[in-house]
């Protein structure tokens, strides 16, 4: 094993982020909404036992397609919007850094 290998292992060794990190992750995980089965979610929406028939019928139609399709459409739009935003920020950063390059070059010429 070469000296470079040793130095790379040293430079890239793992570092523990500490107990604070663990605490933050667990706090955030605990704050996430609890996972419920699809049955529990539907019943939470449609209320007590007397409405189970209506809940079941409506749930069936939702499951068949309307709500699911709309949800997926919104999810897709959100993903596309976030992706477009990310691209825009990259584009602005690059435009900005190249403007700065041009400015610095002008200033260098002015100082020479």
């Amino acid at each position: 094993m070469s000296r470079l290998d040793d130095e790379l292992r040293n430079a890239l060794r793992r570092e523990d982020p500490g107990e604070d990190f663990t605490k933050r992750v667990l706090e955030r995980a605990a704050a996430l909404p609890p996972k419920r089965s699809w049955r529990e979610r539907l019943l939470a929406v449609f209320g007590p036992a007397g409405n189970r028939w209506a809940a079941g019928a409506l749930a069936a139609s939702l499951l068949i397609g309307v709500g699911g399709i709309e949800y997926r459409r919104q999810q897709r739009m959100r993903a596309e919007g976030e992706a477009a935003k990310a691209q825009l920020m990259v584009a602005m950063r690059i435009a900005g850094s190249k403007l700065r390059l041009a400015r610095e070059k002008v200033m260098q010429v002015g100082e020479e």
Partner: peptide, 18 residues
């Protein structure tokens, strides 16, 4: 490579998410 083209509706959509 960075290749970004944003125009029209896509640019407007990006703006909404800012």
């Amino acid at each position: 490579t960075v290749d970004v083209t944003l125009e029209g509706p896509l640019l407007q959509m990006a703006a909404k998410f800012l």
